[in-house]
Amino acid sequence: MDFPPLREELRGLEPYGAPQLSLDVAPVQLNVNENPYPPSPAVVAEIASAVAQAASGLNRYPDRELVALREALAGYLGHGVRPEQVWAANGSNEVMLQLLQAFGGPGRTALSFAPTYSMYPEYARDTVTDWVVGAREDDFGLDLDRARALVEEVRPSVVLLPSPNNPTGTALPPAAVTVLCEAVGDGGIVVVDEAYGEFRRAGTPSALELLPRHRNLVVTRTMSKAFALAGARLGYLAADPAVCDAIRVVRLPYHLSAVTQAVALAALRHAPELLGQVDRLREERDACEAWLRGQGLSAAESDANFVLFGTFADRHAVWQGLLDRGVLVRETGPEGWLRVSIGTPDEMMAFRTALTEVLARVARVTPVTPVTRSQG
Protein backbone atom coordinates (compact mmCIF):
# COMPACT_ATOMS: atom_id res chain seq x y z
CA MET A 1 0.00 0.00 0.00
CA ASP A 2 1.24 3.48 -0.86
CA PHE A 3 2.22 5.78 1.99
CA PRO A 4 0.89 8.09 3.20
CA PRO A 5 -2.69 6.76 2.96
CA LEU A 6 -3.99 9.78 1.03
CA ARG A 7 -7.58 9.91 -0.19
CA GLU A 8 -7.63 8.24 -3.59
CA GLU A 9 -9.01 11.29 -5.43
CA LEU A 10 -6.09 13.41 -4.10
CA ARG A 11 -3.28 11.15 -5.30
CA GLY A 12 -0.95 12.76 -7.83
CA LEU A 13 -2.42 16.24 -7.44
CA GLU A 14 -0.27 19.34 -7.06
CA PRO A 15 -1.06 22.04 -4.47
CA TYR A 16 -2.81 25.15 -5.78
CA GLY A 17 -0.71 28.25 -6.27
CA ALA A 18 0.52 30.80 -8.75
CA PRO A 19 4.27 30.86 -9.40
CA GLN A 20 6.17 32.62 -6.61
CA LEU A 21 9.42 33.95 -8.03
CA SER A 22 12.02 36.21 -6.47
CA LEU A 23 12.28 39.86 -7.44
CA ASP A 24 15.67 39.05 -8.92
CA VAL A 25 13.96 36.79 -11.47
CA ALA A 26 10.78 38.85 -11.94
CA PRO A 27 11.13 42.43 -10.69
CA VAL A 28 7.69 43.27 -12.14
CA GLN A 29 5.15 40.90 -10.54
CA LEU A 30 1.70 41.23 -12.08
CA ASN A 31 0.31 37.73 -11.61
CA VAL A 32 -1.77 37.49 -8.41
CA ASN A 33 -3.92 40.64 -8.51
CA GLU A 34 -2.28 42.31 -5.54
CA ASN A 35 -2.62 46.01 -4.83
CA PRO A 36 0.81 47.42 -5.77
CA TYR A 37 0.58 50.26 -3.25
CA PRO A 38 1.54 49.32 0.34
CA PRO A 39 -0.09 50.93 3.38
CA SER A 40 1.25 54.36 4.25
CA PRO A 41 3.63 54.86 7.21
CA ALA A 42 0.72 56.31 9.22
CA VAL A 43 -1.40 53.20 8.62
CA VAL A 44 1.56 50.94 9.34
CA ALA A 45 2.07 52.73 12.66
CA GLU A 46 -1.62 52.35 13.54
CA ILE A 47 -1.52 48.64 12.71
CA ALA A 48 1.69 48.16 14.68
CA SER A 49 0.13 49.85 17.70
CA ALA A 50 -2.98 47.69 17.44
CA VAL A 51 -0.91 44.53 17.15
CA ALA A 52 1.21 45.53 20.16
CA GLN A 53 -1.94 46.01 22.20
CA ALA A 54 -3.26 42.62 21.07
CA ALA A 55 0.08 41.02 21.88
CA SER A 56 -0.30 41.95 25.54
CA GLY A 57 -3.23 39.55 25.74
CA LEU A 58 -1.97 36.68 23.59
CA ASN A 59 -2.06 34.35 26.58
CA ARG A 60 -5.86 34.43 26.13
CA TYR A 61 -7.89 33.09 23.22
CA PRO A 62 -9.31 35.66 20.78
CA ASP A 63 -12.96 36.61 20.56
CA ARG A 64 -14.35 33.62 18.67
CA GLU A 65 -17.50 35.55 17.69
CA LEU A 66 -15.51 38.48 16.22
CA VAL A 67 -17.98 40.95 17.71
CA ALA A 68 -16.03 44.18 17.21
CA LEU A 69 -14.80 43.14 13.77
CA ARG A 70 -18.28 42.18 12.56
CA GLU A 71 -19.60 45.54 13.72
CA ALA A 72 -16.84 47.39 11.89
CA LEU A 73 -17.28 45.37 8.69
CA ALA A 74 -21.03 45.96 8.72
CA GLY A 75 -20.40 49.68 9.05
CA TYR A 76 -17.99 49.59 6.14
CA LEU A 77 -20.34 47.64 3.86
CA GLY A 78 -23.38 49.86 4.46
CA HIS A 79 -26.52 48.87 2.52
CA GLY A 80 -28.26 48.31 5.84
CA VAL A 81 -26.06 45.30 6.65
CA ARG A 82 -26.14 44.46 10.37
CA PRO A 83 -23.34 42.84 12.42
CA GLU A 84 -25.30 39.60 12.77
CA GLN A 85 -25.28 39.35 8.97
CA VAL A 86 -21.48 39.40 8.79
CA TRP A 87 -18.93 36.63 9.21
CA ALA A 88 -15.14 36.73 8.75
CA ALA A 89 -12.37 34.18 8.36
CA ASN A 90 -8.78 33.63 7.31
CA GLY A 91 -9.11 35.09 3.82
CA SER A 92 -12.08 34.66 1.53
CA ASN A 93 -10.66 31.20 0.78
CA GLU A 94 -11.61 30.02 4.26
CA VAL A 95 -14.97 31.77 3.97
CA MET A 96 -15.67 29.76 0.81
CA LEU A 97 -14.46 26.54 2.37
CA GLN A 98 -16.72 27.08 5.38
CA LEU A 99 -19.68 27.69 3.06
CA LEU A 100 -19.00 24.39 1.30
CA GLN A 101 -18.53 22.60 4.63
CA ALA A 102 -21.89 23.90 5.83
CA PHE A 103 -23.96 23.67 2.66
CA GLY A 104 -22.08 21.18 0.47
CA GLY A 105 -20.86 17.68 1.25
CA PRO A 106 -21.55 14.13 0.03
CA GLY A 107 -24.67 13.89 -2.09
CA ARG A 108 -24.73 17.66 -2.69
CA THR A 109 -23.58 19.72 -5.67
CA ALA A 110 -21.76 23.02 -6.19
CA LEU A 111 -22.20 24.81 -9.52
CA SER A 112 -20.37 27.60 -11.32
CA PHE A 113 -19.92 28.83 -14.89
CA ALA A 114 -16.54 28.65 -16.66
CA PRO A 115 -14.21 30.35 -17.00
CA THR A 116 -14.31 30.87 -13.25
CA TYR A 117 -12.00 30.98 -10.24
CA SER A 118 -9.77 27.94 -10.31
CA MET A 119 -10.06 27.28 -6.56
CA TYR A 120 -13.81 26.63 -6.65
CA PRO A 121 -13.56 23.00 -7.81
CA GLU A 122 -10.90 22.46 -5.14
CA TYR A 123 -13.25 23.69 -2.41
CA ALA A 124 -15.81 21.23 -3.74
CA ARG A 125 -13.27 18.38 -3.89
CA ASP A 126 -12.01 19.04 -0.37
CA THR A 127 -15.55 18.96 1.06
CA VAL A 128 -16.57 15.89 -1.01
CA THR A 129 -19.11 18.00 -2.88
CA ASP A 130 -20.03 17.13 -6.46
CA TRP A 131 -18.83 19.76 -8.92
CA VAL A 132 -20.73 20.88 -12.03
CA VAL A 133 -19.61 23.69 -14.30
CA GLY A 134 -21.67 25.40 -16.96
CA ALA A 135 -20.33 27.67 -19.71
CA ARG A 136 -20.24 31.43 -20.08
CA GLU A 137 -20.93 33.18 -23.35
CA ASP A 138 -18.27 34.49 -25.75
CA ASP A 139 -18.34 37.85 -23.94
CA PHE A 140 -17.92 35.97 -20.63
CA GLY A 141 -21.41 36.92 -19.46
CA LEU A 142 -24.24 34.50 -18.67
CA ASP A 143 -27.12 33.43 -20.86
CA LEU A 144 -29.75 33.61 -18.14
CA ASP A 145 -32.15 31.15 -19.75
CA ARG A 146 -29.42 28.54 -20.07
CA ALA A 147 -28.11 29.27 -16.58
CA ARG A 148 -31.58 28.90 -15.07
CA ALA A 149 -32.16 25.67 -16.95
CA LEU A 150 -28.87 24.23 -15.66
CA VAL A 151 -29.76 25.15 -12.08
CA GLU A 152 -33.17 23.53 -12.43
CA GLU A 153 -31.56 20.40 -13.85
CA VAL A 154 -28.71 20.07 -11.32
CA ARG A 155 -30.48 21.45 -8.21
CA PRO A 156 -27.20 22.62 -6.64
CA SER A 157 -26.95 23.39 -2.95
CA VAL A 158 -24.29 26.04 -3.67
CA VAL A 159 -23.91 28.30 -6.72
CA LEU A 160 -20.61 30.20 -6.92
CA LEU A 161 -20.66 33.40 -8.95
CA PRO A 162 -17.56 35.62 -8.89
CA SER A 163 -18.50 39.19 -9.79
CA PRO A 164 -16.26 40.68 -11.03
CA ASN A 165 -15.34 37.29 -12.39
CA ASN A 166 -11.84 35.90 -12.01
CA PRO A 167 -10.13 35.51 -14.48
CA THR A 168 -12.19 37.62 -16.90
CA GLY A 169 -13.09 40.68 -14.79
CA THR A 170 -16.72 40.46 -15.89
CA ALA A 171 -19.37 41.84 -13.51
CA LEU A 172 -22.84 40.31 -13.27
CA PRO A 173 -25.91 42.53 -13.54
CA PRO A 174 -28.41 42.37 -10.66
CA ALA A 175 -30.92 40.59 -12.90
CA ALA A 176 -28.60 37.60 -13.22
CA VAL A 177 -28.24 37.29 -9.45
CA THR A 178 -32.00 37.51 -8.96
CA VAL A 179 -32.73 34.90 -11.64
CA LEU A 180 -30.34 32.42 -10.05
CA CYS A 181 -31.46 33.10 -6.47
CA GLU A 182 -35.05 32.45 -7.55
CA ALA A 183 -34.06 29.32 -9.48
CA VAL A 184 -32.15 27.89 -6.51
CA GLY A 185 -34.82 28.76 -3.96
CA ASP A 186 -34.55 27.64 -0.35
CA GLY A 187 -32.83 24.41 -1.43
CA GLY A 188 -29.46 26.15 -1.73
CA ILE A 189 -27.45 29.34 -1.54
CA VAL A 190 -26.08 31.66 -4.22
CA VAL A 191 -22.65 33.03 -3.38
CA VAL A 192 -21.63 36.21 -5.21
CA ASP A 193 -17.88 36.48 -4.74
CA GLU A 194 -17.02 40.20 -4.79
CA ALA A 195 -13.32 39.86 -4.00
CA TYR A 196 -12.70 42.64 -6.53
CA GLY A 197 -15.91 44.52 -5.79
CA GLU A 198 -14.27 47.83 -4.89
CA PHE A 199 -12.77 48.06 -8.38
CA ARG A 200 -16.14 48.06 -10.15
CA ARG A 201 -16.75 50.73 -12.76
CA ALA A 202 -19.02 53.63 -11.84
CA GLY A 203 -22.63 52.52 -12.16
CA THR A 204 -21.93 48.82 -11.69
CA PRO A 205 -24.01 47.82 -8.63
CA SER A 206 -23.00 45.47 -5.83
CA ALA A 207 -25.00 42.36 -5.01
CA LEU A 208 -25.19 43.77 -1.47
CA GLU A 209 -28.19 45.75 -2.71
CA LEU A 210 -30.08 42.49 -3.22
CA LEU A 211 -29.58 41.01 0.23
CA PRO A 212 -32.97 42.20 1.56
CA ARG A 213 -34.73 40.49 -1.38
CA HIS A 214 -33.03 37.08 -1.31
CA ARG A 215 -32.40 35.23 1.94
CA ASN A 216 -30.41 32.60 0.05
CA LEU A 217 -27.91 35.20 -1.23
CA VAL A 218 -24.39 35.40 0.22
CA VAL A 219 -21.98 38.19 -0.77
CA THR A 220 -18.29 37.61 -0.01
CA ARG A 221 -15.51 40.17 0.12
CA THR A 222 -11.82 40.34 1.02
CA MET A 223 -9.39 42.89 2.40
CA SER A 224 -6.58 41.41 0.27
CA LYS A 225 -7.16 43.45 -2.87
CA ALA A 226 -8.49 47.00 -2.63
CA PHE A 227 -7.38 47.33 1.02
CA ALA A 228 -3.82 46.23 0.10
CA LEU A 229 -3.83 43.69 2.94
CA ALA A 230 -3.10 40.43 1.12
CA GLY A 231 -0.63 39.51 3.84
CA ALA A 232 -3.20 39.96 6.61
CA ARG A 233 -5.54 37.20 5.34
CA LEU A 234 -8.97 38.58 6.13
CA GLY A 235 -12.07 37.65 4.14
CA TYR A 236 -15.71 38.09 5.09
CA LEU A 237 -19.30 37.71 3.95
CA ALA A 238 -22.70 39.31 4.33
CA ALA A 239 -25.81 37.12 4.40
CA ASP A 240 -28.97 36.28 6.26
CA PRO A 241 -28.16 35.76 9.97
CA ALA A 242 -29.26 32.13 9.65
CA VAL A 243 -26.44 31.57 7.14
CA CYS A 244 -23.90 33.03 9.57
CA ASP A 245 -25.24 30.81 12.35
CA ALA A 246 -24.87 27.76 10.12
CA ILE A 247 -21.24 28.61 9.35
CA ARG A 248 -20.49 28.94 13.04
CA VAL A 249 -21.31 25.23 13.37
CA VAL A 250 -18.41 24.23 11.09
CA ARG A 251 -15.84 26.89 11.94
CA LEU A 252 -12.75 25.81 13.83
CA PRO A 253 -12.47 27.05 17.42
CA TYR A 254 -10.90 30.52 17.57
CA HIS A 255 -10.25 30.40 13.83
CA LEU A 256 -9.34 34.09 13.53
CA SER A 257 -6.41 35.19 15.67
CA ALA A 258 -6.43 38.23 17.93
CA VAL A 259 -3.62 39.69 15.81
CA THR A 260 -5.59 39.32 12.57
CA GLN A 261 -8.65 40.90 14.15
CA ALA A 262 -6.56 43.80 15.43
CA VAL A 263 -4.98 44.38 12.02
CA ALA A 264 -8.34 44.33 10.27
CA LEU A 265 -9.93 46.73 12.76
CA ALA A 266 -7.01 49.16 12.42
CA ALA A 267 -7.26 48.98 8.62
CA LEU A 268 -11.00 49.64 8.67
CA ARG A 269 -10.38 52.78 10.73
CA HIS A 270 -8.23 53.96 7.80
CA ALA A 271 -10.50 52.66 5.01
CA PRO A 272 -10.63 55.93 3.00
CA GLU A 273 -6.84 56.17 2.90
CA LEU A 274 -6.28 52.49 2.09
CA LEU A 275 -8.85 52.66 -0.69
CA GLY A 276 -7.33 55.89 -1.98
CA GLN A 277 -5.48 54.18 -4.83
CA VAL A 278 -8.55 52.39 -6.21
CA ASP A 279 -9.43 55.17 -8.66
CA ARG A 280 -5.85 55.28 -9.88
CA LEU A 281 -5.84 51.52 -10.45
CA ARG A 282 -9.13 51.77 -12.34
CA GLU A 283 -7.58 54.37 -14.65
CA GLU A 284 -4.53 52.17 -15.23
CA ARG A 285 -6.81 49.20 -15.95
CA ASP A 286 -8.82 51.11 -18.53
CA ALA A 287 -5.64 52.42 -20.15
CA CYS A 288 -4.23 48.88 -20.25
CA GLU A 289 -7.37 47.56 -21.97
CA ALA A 290 -7.22 50.31 -24.58
CA TRP A 291 -3.51 49.77 -25.22
CA LEU A 292 -3.91 46.00 -25.63
CA ARG A 293 -6.69 46.49 -28.15
CA GLY A 294 -4.49 48.99 -29.94
CA GLN A 295 -1.95 46.21 -30.43
CA GLY A 296 -4.57 44.14 -32.25
CA LEU A 297 -5.28 41.93 -29.24
CA SER A 298 -8.54 41.14 -27.49
CA ALA A 299 -9.01 42.38 -23.94
CA ALA A 300 -11.96 41.46 -21.77
CA GLU A 301 -13.75 44.50 -20.36
CA SER A 302 -12.84 44.34 -16.70
CA ASP A 303 -14.44 45.60 -13.50
CA ALA A 304 -11.49 44.25 -11.48
CA ASN A 305 -7.82 45.16 -11.00
CA PHE A 306 -6.64 42.90 -13.82
CA VAL A 307 -7.18 42.39 -17.55
CA LEU A 308 -7.53 39.11 -19.46
CA PHE A 309 -5.93 39.43 -22.88
CA GLY A 310 -5.08 37.34 -25.93
CA THR A 311 -5.39 35.39 -27.97
CA PHE A 312 -2.18 33.50 -28.71
CA ALA A 313 -1.39 30.31 -30.58
CA ASP A 314 1.07 29.47 -27.77
CA ARG A 315 0.27 31.49 -24.70
CA HIS A 316 3.02 29.81 -22.69
CA ALA A 317 5.57 31.18 -25.13
CA VAL A 318 4.22 34.68 -24.52
CA TRP A 319 4.22 34.11 -20.75
CA GLN A 320 7.82 32.88 -20.88
CA GLY A 321 8.85 35.73 -23.14
CA LEU A 322 7.49 38.25 -20.65
CA LEU A 323 9.20 36.44 -17.76
CA ASP A 324 12.49 36.45 -19.67
CA ARG A 325 12.12 40.24 -19.66
CA GLY A 326 11.41 40.37 -15.94
CA VAL A 327 7.61 40.63 -16.09
CA LEU A 328 5.50 37.92 -14.42
CA VAL A 329 1.85 37.59 -15.51
CA ARG A 330 -0.60 34.71 -15.00
CA GLU A 331 -1.14 31.85 -17.41
CA THR A 332 -4.79 31.20 -16.62
CA GLY A 333 -8.25 31.37 -18.13
CA PRO A 334 -9.40 29.97 -21.47
CA GLU A 335 -6.79 28.54 -23.81
CA GLY A 336 -4.90 31.28 -25.60
CA TRP A 337 -5.46 33.98 -22.97
CA LEU A 338 -3.23 35.52 -20.27
CA ARG A 339 -4.08 37.72 -17.29
CA VAL A 340 -2.15 40.77 -16.16
CA SER A 341 -2.68 42.42 -12.78
CA ILE A 342 -2.71 46.21 -12.72
CA GLY A 343 0.42 47.65 -11.15
CA THR A 344 2.02 51.05 -10.77
CA PRO A 345 2.53 53.25 -13.85
CA ASP A 346 6.18 52.16 -14.00
CA GLU A 347 5.22 48.49 -13.77
CA MET A 348 2.61 48.87 -16.51
CA MET A 349 5.15 50.62 -18.73
CA ALA A 350 7.53 47.71 -18.20
CA PHE A 351 4.72 45.30 -19.12
CA ARG A 352 3.90 47.21 -22.31
CA THR A 353 7.56 47.39 -23.33
CA ALA A 354 8.09 43.69 -22.72
CA LEU A 355 4.90 42.62 -24.48
CA THR A 356 5.73 44.77 -27.51
CA GLU A 357 9.02 42.93 -27.84
CA VAL A 358 7.38 39.54 -27.37
CA LEU A 359 4.61 40.25 -29.89
CA ALA A 360 7.24 40.81 -32.56
CA ARG A 361 8.38 37.22 -32.08
CA VAL A 362 5.31 35.07 -31.44
CA ALA A 363 2.32 33.94 -33.45
CA ARG A 364 -1.13 35.21 -32.55
CA VAL A 365 -4.49 33.62 -33.06
CA THR A 366 -6.76 35.54 -35.42
CA PRO A 367 -8.33 38.26 -33.26
CA VAL A 368 -11.81 37.46 -32.01
CA THR A 369 -14.71 39.88 -31.77
CA PRO A 370 -13.81 42.52 -29.16
CA VAL A 371 -15.19 41.56 -25.78
CA THR A 372 -17.75 43.90 -24.26
CA ARG A 373 -19.82 43.62 -21.15
CA SER A 374 -22.86 41.36 -21.24
CA GLN A 375 -26.20 43.06 -20.82
CA GLY A 376 -27.98 39.82 -20.00
Rank of each mutant, 00 (worst) to 15 (best):
R82Y: 05
L208G: 09
E137C: 07
H255G: 05
L172H: 07
S206V: 03
L237R: 03
G333W: 06
G141E: 04
R269V: 02
D314I: 00
S257N: 08
G197V: 09
E289G: 13
T129W: 03
T204D: 00
I47P: 02
A230W: 15
L308C: 05
G336M: 01
H214D: 01
P164L: 06
A271E: 10
L99P: 06
D139R: 10
V177Q: 01
L23S: 14
R200G: 01
R364T: 06
P5E: 14
L217G: 12
P367H: 09
V43M: 13
H79F: 15
D314R: 07
E182D: 15
T260L: 13
A72V: 12
D2N: 09
A124G: 13
A18V: 11
W87C: 06
W131H: 15
E65W: 09
A354F: 10
R7G: 02
G80C: 15
A304P: 12
V95T: 13
Y61W: 14
H214T: 04
Y61A: 13
A266W: 01
V329M: 00
E71D: 14
A18N: 09
L10T: 06
A45V: 03
N59H: 14
E46N: 03
W337P: 00
T178E: 15
Q98C: 01
S112M: 08
L144A: 02
L100P: 01
Q53Y: 03
F199R: 00
G294L: 04
E46C: 03
L275E: 11
L100Y: 14
A360K: 06
F351N: 05
P345L: 09
